[in-house]
Each structure stands twice: as C-alpha cells, then as structure tokens.
Design a binder for these strands. Structure first.
Length: 559
RNA sequence: GUGCUUGUAGCUCAGUUGGAUAGAGUAUUUGGCUACGAACCAAAGGGUCAGGGGUUCGAAUCCCUUCAAGCACGCCA
C-alpha cells in the first residue's frame, strides 16, 4: 500500500506544478520544496514555489503566488484553505481525514510498516566494530556496534540487501605484539617477574596474564625449552580463539549477530594480498625505497606516501586492507561497502579510496562513516580509556552496568560525527533518566490497556469495523500524523546513513501517545469511540515496536 | 604547523536540499491521580545559534576569517 503521507505530499506538489505551468506557460518551472511549517499556524504544508519563480517571472513573489493559487482547486486536494503568507509561501490547510488511512496501512503491513524501497535490492556490506582480537572491546566499539547494527537494520528496511561483517585482524604487528606479551607473562609466571622484561609496547592488561596462567594450568611449562617464535605461536594459537570467542559472545549479548566473520589471515594465506600488490605495481603507482615497497599516496591527495611492504618483507595493514576491499567489491560483488571507523582512522580514508581507484575500483563504492570517539567522564573528569592502564571500561562492563537497551538507544541518540561525553555516574546511577524508558513505558502502557480490554472481551478491531472519523481531537490527529511519518523517517535515515533521527522520532511518537493518553480515555468510552481509539493505540504500538526493533531495543509489555 | 570533526538555553542535545516568531529533554517554579500504569501529562521562565565579515527576497544552515575543543599526521592497526 502506498504511503499516506508521501501520496498527499506529491499530490500537492504536482497540483502546484501544474497550476504554475498554466499561469506561466512560457517559463520552465523549477523544482521547489514542500515542507511542514514549524508553526502550525502556517498550515499543514507550505511550498516556496512563488519565491523560486520571482526572478524568472520578473514579478513579486506574492503576486506570483496569487496567480498560482487561482489555478488550484482546494477541494480536489482535500484542503480546507489555501493561503498566501509571509514573503510568498503558499500554505495548505488540510482536512485531516486522509490520515485515517494510516491505520489501514499499518494493519496491512504490520511489522513491515515503515519499510521503503530506496535501493532496489542492491548489495551492501556494512563492516563495523572489527575490534582487535588482542583484548576486550572499548566504548568506541560499543558506539560503533550500536550504530552499525542499527544502520544495517535501517538499510534492510529501505530495500538494501545487507551483509553485516566483522573484520578480524588476526595477522600483522598487533598479533606479534600480542604474542610477545603472552610470552613474557608466560615466562614471568613460571620463572619469576625478574626472569624476563615485559615488552615496553606490550599489552599491560590482566587478560594477558590470565591467558598465560590458564595455559600453564592446562599444559604446564612445556613451552619453556622451545624457540621463542614457537612459544609465541603456540600461545597466540591458544589465546586468540578464546579472545575471538569472547568478542562474539559479548556482541551477541549486545544484540549483534554478524553474517560474516572475515579473517585477515585468509587474505595473506590465499595470495590475495600478493595479487593486489602485483596489480598496484603494474599500475605504476608504487616504488621501492629503503628496502620497502611504497605507494604514491600523494598522487591521490594524501600528505605523504605510504608503505605497502616493510623492509622485512611483511605487508602492512594498508596492503591487506586494499586486498580486503577488492575482495568485497570485486570478488563478492557488493554494490557498496560501508565501513564504520573511529575518528582516529580518518586519515586512512583518502589513501584507501585512492588505492582502490589504482586497482580499478571506484572510490565511490566505499563509504566510510567516522564516529567520534567516546569520552568517558567520571566525577566530572575525563576518565582515560587506555588499554595500557588495563583499567578501561569495556563493552561487557557497560552492558552489565546499564543494560543493552539503554546502551544501544543512548549511542543512537546522536549522529556518528558528534563528539560524545559518556557520563559513567549518570549511566550507573540514574538510568531512569534515559529516554529509552520513556519510550518503553509508552509501549507497556498500550499493552496494558489492550490486555485489560481483552480480558473483558474487547478485541482490537479491524480497521473496516471502526468509525475512524470519531478520532477528531487534536491529540488523536497529531498522533496519527506522527505515525504516518515513519516511512519518510526510515527513508531519511537510509539515505543519510544516519539512524539517529529514529530515536528522536520514537521519543516524538511516545510523547504524542502520552499526551493522547492524558487527554482521551480508551476504556469506558462509548463503544464506537472505544473501538476507534483501541485501533489507534494498537497502531501506535506497532510503530513503536517496529522502531525499537530497528534499534535493537526490547519492547516490553510490562515494566 | 597541516588536515578532519565539533561549537545552539545553566546542563545534554534536535533543527530535513537555505524559509516564516530558533525547538525538545533535564534542572527550577506551578498545577493535575476516588483514573485504562504519575517511569505520565499541562503550564511558566530561560538564547549575542562561539566572535566578525560576505553571498540573497531570506542564513543556526552556504563561503571567508578569528577563537576554542577533540582526533590524526608511524616500515602501528
């Protein structure tokens, strides 16, 4: 079923376009905007067409507006009044009965209500979190996870074929550092703290020590007489899968289920990195210097060139990442790759796109969303979230403290690019102030009313069995209007790759419901009115549930 | 130093491709349960949209500039 709101909008738009053409046949009518005025006093919709035409028509906007309005038929548009106002706006005041159709739309589409088609089944891979498997996840991962998963849900509802992916950095220098850290702890635990110096750049966290101790408990000191490389390999082979499993467990708890866990090592082992390097060499974008292979990043906008293969023969992360994106966009044939990166990686974007172009892939097929890092606040002061102190708040801690619902809702309240202070004291002690409860409360309230009515034998009626015109109070009309907006909210989210407007929308729905609740009774009203209102709140419940689903937040029937 | 991001009410933030008198929440003050859930509702006060300049019918929004904050500028990832 076509969306109620967008139909009304395009009806008005097209009518205005025709009216303008009739009034000014010699002028090509430009695209103009139709919008909902901030001030209700200015009608339900306003268009700026007359102002747009002022120059071409060589006439005052208000005079032009009069000529256009003369060609508009108010009753055919369902308008009670068409007015010219301000500098030349044409304002439409509508008979709101068209909004009743929203309830039929929701009844028909149910959990799919709000879905739109902006992508026509095109394939997109959304890669997010991709935390280093050398330790637990931090607040940046928490934010990236909430955004990535929610965005994926939004894109699915907007007609994209979505694959959610986690890129596991199980190769390279980080893993080597991980091995050296494990090795040092292993020896220290067996031979004393003084036996070996802990690497200066090693991972200080307790988790490293715990891994070493567990290994010893299981296998004893069998590695002591082995070569260092062998010890590191064994310890990594033991600890890395455990870390990855822990990541997976935490993310599952966080409500995130990936379609693909992609191992960086497969790119190295499968020859894909090498093949990519060959391709880059052939396109004449590389050179050798100081024993390393470089890429001329300055040729595509970077400040300096970058190393692809180190002097020791090991490819850099960058080289692997180019291979990875060839894998995504060529081998697996995605139409678009969306990556969610922390702000500390933004410098990587320009050279990544440039390198993609160098191997023949359009940089436009990669869209990187940069999330500003989360700053933890405690007692009004910045709390360091460093892996080196070993004292950072992890994603698992956060889930334990404030719950999945609050965390996911909270992180999605702000656009990715906004800087964000996360107040730990508030999160721990005053979670009731979190708007997620406000929204969930609305849902539970509706469920409660429906439950009580069902117990007395009144079921939610079909839209064909109610007299919708009984819903005439302001609070009822405004609630319907809000429900009707869902499809365009999802469209806006999907087009801007920003789901944060959905949390604001949801709060708006809840707010209109609560106002309705206080102004209108459902139970004990005259029967026809009761049925109409029951249908209205059931429609509201479905909308709230749908958006909470997108956000990955639960919709409780009781609280 | 260069680049990216950000600056809106006491605090946390919205503000749709430039639109009409810049909006919410929170905090403060006041009112509303003999009631389908008061984790709610209604109302009030609160602003140099960081400062300055420009573009135009019209700027929180676009351009220039100054100031302030965060991040990045590795043969780390």
């Amino acid at each position: 079923m076509a969306n109620t709101l967008s139909m009304k909008k395009s009806q008005i738009y097209n009518a205005a376009m025709e009216a303008a053409k009739a009034a000014y046949p010699e002028i090509e009518i430009p695209a103009f905007t139709i919008e909902v005025p901030k001030d209700k006093g200015n009608g339900d919709y306003a268009i700026n067409l007359a102002m747009m035409l002022a120059r071409a028509a060589k006439s005052a906007p208000r005079a032009i507006a009069e000529n256009i309005v003369a060609n508009l038929k108010a009753d055919e548009l369902g308008a009670t009044k068409i007015e010219i106002a301000g500098p030349g706006f044409i304002n439409f005041y509508l008979d709101k009965s068209y909004l009743y159709n929203v309830m039929a739309e929701i009844e028909e589409e149910k959990e799919a209500y709000g879905n739109v088609n902006v992508a026509d089944g095109k394939k997109v891979v959304v890669e997010f979190v991709s935390a280093n498997p050398t330790g637990p996840m931090h607040m940046g991962n928490a934010r990236g996870g909430a955004l990535g998963d929610t965005l994926s849900n939004v894109l699915s509802r907007a007609g994209w074929d979505v694959t959610k992916e986690f890129y596991i950095n199980d190769a390279g220098a980080q893993i080597d550092k991980f091995g050296r850290s494990l090795d040092a702890r292993y020896i220290q635990l067996l031979k004393g703290e003084e036996a070996v110096e802990f690497p200066e750049d090693g991972y200080q966290g307790d988790d490293i020590r715990v891994h070493a101790q567990n290994y010893i408990d299981k296998y004893g000191d069998i590695l002591l007489d082995k070569e260092e490389q062998e010890r590191k390999d064994q310890l990594v082979a033991y600890a890395l899968p455990l870390n990855i499993a822990a990541l997976q467990e935490t993310l599952t708890k966080y409500g995130i289920n990936y379609d693909v866990w992609f191992y960086e090592s497969t790119l190295h082992n499968g020859g894909s990195v090498e093949e990519t390097l060959e391709k880059l060499k052939k396109s004449n974008i590389t050179y050798e210097k100081d024993g390393a292979l470089w890429i001329k990043s300055t040729e595509f906008g970077s400040e300096k060139d970058d190393v692809l293969v180190r002097a020791n023969g090991i490819p850099t992360y960058f080289a692997a990442d180019i291979a990875y994106h060839r894998n995504k966009l060529e081998e697996r044939d995605f139409d678009l790759a969306i990556n969610i990166w922390g702000a500390d990686h933004h410098g990587h974007i320009t050279r990544m796109k440039g390198a993609m172009e160098a191997v023949g892939i359009s940089g436009d097929k990669l869209d990187v969303l940069v999330i500003q890092l989360v700053r933890l606040m405690r007692n009004g002061e910045v709390a360091r979230m460093s892996k080196r102190t070993g004292k950072m708040i992890t994603l698992a801690d956060l889930i334990d403290e404030i719950g999945v619902d609050a965390a996911r809702f909270f992180f999605n309240m702000r656009a990715a690019g906004s800087h964000m202070d996360f107040d730990l004291d508030l999160a721990v002690s005053q979670t009731n102030e979190n708007p997620v409860f406000y929204v969930q409360y609305a849902h539970a309230r509706i469920c409660s009313i429906i439950r009580i009515l069902e117990e007395s034998g009144v079921k939610v009626p079909a839209v064909s069995d109610i007299d919708a015109s009984l819903l005439a109070k302001d609070e009822e009309i405004e609630l319907l209007e809000t429900l009707a907006r869902l499809p365009e909210e999802i469209k806006a989210s999907a087009e801007s790759f920003d789901p944060s407007n959905l949390t604001h929308y949801l709060i708006d729905v809840a707010s209109h419901f609560h106002s309705f609740y206080n102004a209108c009774r459902v139970r004990d009203e005259e029967e026809n009115l009761m049925c109409a209102r029951l249908k209205l709140i059931e429609s509201t419940r479905i909308v709230i549930k749908n958006v909470l689903d997108i956000l990955g937040v639960s919709a409780p029937e009781k609280m």
